[in-house]
Every structure is written in structure tokens, then in C-alpha cells.
Design a protein around this nucleic acid. Structure first.
Lengths: 321, 321
DNA sequence: TGCCCAGTTTGACTTTTGTCGAGAGCCGTG
DNA sequence: CACGGCTCTCGACAAAAGTCAAACTGGGCA
């Protein structure tokens, strides 16, 4: 009985413990193993998603602020992570909340589009394991060759791993050196298929990038700081799935965008649930752009950002009237 | 701060403990309360479904036997509760499994039809709490006035309570004394509406009753033992949602059925997922009838029953060839 | 006002659970 | 066939969680 402790035993232990409510020693005697082993199995069961512990995120939508934001920005749902009191690290708080919200939004059989970035990777990192075998996680945009730690494929694969789902990477560079090459590559059947499959997603997860020298696009060499500054003066307001958008949330008409291999914004908008998570307060304008462009239906932000959004909306309405 | 500890605190405690993985004493100090209170809050959180602990029921479908049954009976999914070894009470085991399976099948926004009986009530009784606010549980058949403990409305309400969902009872007797009255009552707008709403359900939960003197219908006075025996000789093979069905799973043409207020079998068949749970080995024939009538897409049974079903199917095929 | 009640909170205690290092079986390899 | 390397397992200890009766709280009521 020392061969292959196997899923089987883990399952049984988890079943007896969590579903029947037995104590670990009772489980141990039923299964003829030591209690220590049971404890270990149970940990594994939790880690692999055989048991699922999830907490309602309702607390964060019950907030009046969240409700107001939903109304004023016409979003389906908003979650606000508290930042006021002795919270050690608000950005972690946001990531943890976003991970829970994400898991709550996923349904069996879903196809999920995932973009990339520090925020997305942080969410993946704190996401608890689940066992969603008939779920597919697809990468929304091309890869960056640069030795950068939040690569699009890493984000996709990590989330797929956590969910025990199928991961669908796509191996094209995010940005090419000429528009021609980008066009040609987009026409490739493999790539075209992947791109057209995006609109069949049921759920999307992304953050939004800022248009400044700290942007990921600059850090990993897709754009130089001066190019970025140029784009900014041309009206660039944010970055979504590797593409530059203007203040209205439309793709900016520029060479860079034409050289990018990524899901079209129209495809993104075709996804029913679009979860946008923003950690940094500095991403206020990019977020406004994303919302303006209808790229967001579900939003997770910190309390401070939420307040800014609400104030801004109020000011806009006042000005209009 | 002693006023209304409220959901708020429970939510926060649950969040810090389960989502952030803090220890109870850390949660206690964050929230400025004693660890004992935290422990109590966490229990409440579990009881009210603010946190959800669920275990994958895959173990029970992985069974080869389950796979074979799915094939041979053309069912969508089969779960088999083990009965072989030192399991104390196989019927409880089946109920616990059925409850887990049920919870796994429920999706947000679902409308769920629930019938009645000892089995259904047992399932409700062991079902863990969940917080599915946009779920509606509807009663599939009329009530029994008799002082019987597994009344249809009780089954419905208990499941709704566990799920924190809306319960939709319907207050008509299950069986009337004359066909005329039954017809008249069925024509009542309130009742008609409820009955026609059944086919809009996404999920149904019921067991199947035996046609003998031990049947609930006899025990609660809807039928006398001799009437039951009569029906049996007329071809009655089982009871579904208070109605007598024949071996082919069709409604038996008899006075009793015409006097019953319950969801029509056609409405039941219109429900995409029909979870049938059978505990007693004696319900072999009724179950066969239900399956024959297409009243079952998802099945939970004990190992012994599963084997009988498979043997029977094998024999039938052999005979046919 | 003073008293009682229902529900909360707490400290102290017990029980349950997590973890560690050591030991045992298995396997491929030299 | 003996040897490490590997993983699984166990016993014992430390840490964490559950429990209970007693104290407390604020609000309703005579």
C-alpha cells in the first residue's frame, strides 16, 4: 500500500473530511493511514483544487460607493478594495480581491481571455487553485521576447495552471518591426484563428497600462521613452492588451498599433464579461479611457481610485448640465 | 462598537481568514476583537454560505462503472456512491454525495425545480450552505396536507434556505378527491402560472417512488394500499413528482393521476438537467421506468444499484441481439 | 429609574490540526 | 546486487482552532 498514494486517496480523504465533516483522526482510521498523512493529503487537496474554499466577495460590492460607480459609469459590477486603515499593502489587497472576483465570475465550460502585465500576474499569483477542467484560458495578445517577468504567455499559463484548465498560448511577437510583417503574420491561419477565437470568450481579464516612461511597453523595449512621449502627445491615453488607446477608448491611429499582434478591441467588446483590475492610482486616465471605450463591464479598484472616478463623473455631469 | 456585529464583521473576518490566509489571532488583532469571537464569526460565515467549501465529486464519476452506465443508459452524468467497505450508512452516503453533486450543478441565476420525498429531504438536510442569491427554487408538485415530515413545501423551503435562494412554494393539494376539481384548480391563474413555469427551470432534483404499500403516497393517505395494488396491476411502475408512471416512464392513465396537481412530465423533460437520486435498492424498477421515460439526465445511486442497472442493460441488449 | 432579556464577547481550557525530521519502501543505475 | 535518490509515511511536538460558562452590553419595559 505504499505505491502511488494517488489522487484516489486524496479524494477520499478530502471527501470524508470536508463533505462528511469527520475529524482527521477518523479519516485516518477509515483509510488506515496516519493522521499526519491525512493532514498532508488535505493540504494537497486544497492546493490542487479538489476542494474549493471561496469567500463571497459581496462585502466589496455592498459598498455604497461601489453601487454609485456602477450606476454612474454603467458598469455591471464594481468591487472596491478598502485602503483606509492599517492595510499593509493595498496593491496586494486589490490583487487578492480581484482573484476572488475572477473565480466567482468563471463558470464551467467558459473560455477566458487573459492579457498580461504586472497586475494580471499578481492576480494569478495569489489566485487559489480550482479544478475547472472544461475551461480554456486563451492569450489575448502576442508575446514579448524581452526577458521580462510578466510575459503574456506566463500570465496565461499560470492562470490556466491554477484553474487546472487548458491554456492556449499564442506564439507570435506582440510587436513587429514593420506593418507589413504584422499584416502578413495576422493573415497566417494559426494566428488568425487564435485572434478570431477571442470574441468567443465568455470572460476576459486585463488591466490597463499607463502611457509613460514606466510603461511595460517601454520597460521591455517595445517602445522607447521618446516614442512613448510622442504617442502621448498624439492623444494616447492608455494601453489595453498591448494596444495604445486614446481617451475615448479607441485604437490610436499610429504605426505602433499597426505593428501589434493582439486581439482587436471589437473582439474584446464582444466578450460578455470584461473584468478590468487597476492597482495603481496613477492609472486614472488610462482607466477612464478604457471605460469610455466600453472595454470594461466588471471593475476592481482600490478605494481611492473609486472615489476619484466618482468625483470625476460627478464633475462631468455637472459641467454638462 | 458593540452594536450590530452584523454581517460586515463576519464578512471581514471570513475574508481575512480564508482569502488572505491569516491566522485567527491575526484576524482578531486586525479587527480588535478576541480570537474566540473570530472563531465564532467564521463558523457563522460557513453556516451562512459567506464562505463556501466544496469538494470535487469527480472521484465518483471517475469510476469505470459510472462511465459504462452513462454510455449504456445515455445519461449525461452518473455518480456512484461506494457501499462496499465499512461505510456506516449507505443511504446517508448517497445523500451527502447527491447534495455535493447538486451544488456542483447549480449555476448562478438558475431556476431549480424540486420534488419531494424522504430522499430529497435527506439531501436538503445534509446540504451545505451557500450564498446563491439569484437562484430560485420552485416546488414541482402540490402539497400533502397529511402530518408527514417530508412535505413538498418543506423540501423546497429547506433547499432554498440552504442556498440562500428564493423559494417558490405552491399551495395546492397534491391530490384532490375529484377529477373535476383538479381540472378547475389547474385552470386557476396562480396554479397555472406555477405549473407552466416549471419548464423554465434549468435544473430539477427528484427521486423516484416505489409502487407498494410503503410508498409515501400510501403513508400520507393519498392512496390506500389496495388502490396502490390495483394501480400496480394496471402497470404502475413508479412515482415521479407525485404522479404514477408506467414501465415506459409515461403517465399512467388512471383516475389518481387525473386528480393530481403536479408538473407535467413533458415540463420536466424540458428541463435541461434532471438530477435523479435513488437511495433504496428496492426502487430498481421505478428507476428503470424513470430512465425509460427520459426523466433523468444526471443520476446518483449506490454501487449496488449501479451494478444492477448495468447488468439489466447488458441483459436487455443481449436479448435484443 | 431600575431590572431583565437576548445576544455578544471574553479568557481559560480542551481538542484538533499542522509540521518536522527520521525511517521505510521503491526504482533506476552503475 | 548494492547504492543513492526519491517519495511516501509515521510519531511526536508545537501551533492553532474549537468550546464553554461567565461576564458584559444595550435596549425594551414596567
Amino acid at each position: 500500500m505504499a505505491i502511488r498514494p494517488a489522487e484516489q486517496l486524496i479524494h477520499k480523504a478530502a471527501w470524508l473530511y470536508y463533505a462528511h465533516g469527520l475529524r482527521q483522526d477518523q479519516v485516518a482510521s477509515q483509510l488506515n493511514i496516519s493522521r499526519a498523512s491525512v493532514a498532508m493529503y488535505l493540504r494537497k487537496a486544497r492546493e490542487t483544487g479538489i476542494v474549493n474554499i471561496s469567500t463571497s466577495t459581496q462585502l466589496f460590492t455592498d459598498d455604497v460607493l461601489a453601487r454609485k460607480l456602477e450606476d454612474v459609469l454603467s458598469l455591471d459590477a464594481v468591487w472596491i478594495a478598502p485602503e483606509n486603515d492599517h492595510i499593509a499593502d493595498p496593491s496586494t489587497e486589490i490583487a487578492v480581491l480581484a482573484a476572488s472576483v475572477f473565480l466567482e465570475l468563471v463558470k464551467k465550460g467558459d473560455r477566458i481571455g487573459v492579457a498580461w502585465g504586472r497586475t494580471v500576474y499578481m492576480i494569478a499569483d495569489v489566485m487559489s487553485y480550482a479544478d475547472l477542467q472544461d475551461v480554456t484560458v486563451v492569450q489575448l495578445c502576442g508575446n514579448l521576447g524581452a526577458p521580462y517577468s510578466y510575459r503574456p504567455d506566463q500570465c496565461t499559463m499560470e492562470i490556466a495552471r491554477r484553474l487546472n484548465a487548458k491554456g492556449l498560448n499564442f506564439y507570435a511577437p506582440l510587436v513587429l518591426s514593420t506593418e507589413e510583417l504584422a499584416r502578413a503574420l495576422r493573415a497566417e491561419p494559426v494566428i488568425r484563428e487564435q485572434l478570431s477565437g477571442v470574441s468567443e470568450c465568455d470572460l476576459a481579464l486585463y488591466s490597463v497600462g499607463a502611457v509613460d516612461a514606466d510603461s511595460h511597453l517601454v520597460k521591455c523595449g517595445a517602445l522607447t521613452p521618446s516614442e512613448m512621449a510622442d504617442l502621448r502627445s498624439q492623444g494616447a491615453a492608455g494601453v489595453i492588451a498591448g494596444q495604445i488607446i486614446d481617451a475615448e477608448g479607441k485604437v490610436l491611429d499610429c504605426s505602433y498599433n499597426r505593428r501589434v499582434i493582439s486581439a482587436e478591441l471589437a473582439s474584446l467588446r464582444a466578450i460578455a464579461r470584461r473584468l478590468v483590475v487597476v492597482q495603481e492610482d496613477s492609472k486614472f486616465e488610462p482607466l477612464l479611457a478604457a471605460i469610455a471605450g466600453g472595454l470594461c463591464t466588471h471593475l476592481v479598484v482600490g478605494a481611492h481610485m473609486a472615489q476619484r472616478l466618482l468625483d470625476h463623473a460627478a464633475a462631468t455631469i455637472e459641467k454638462a448640465s
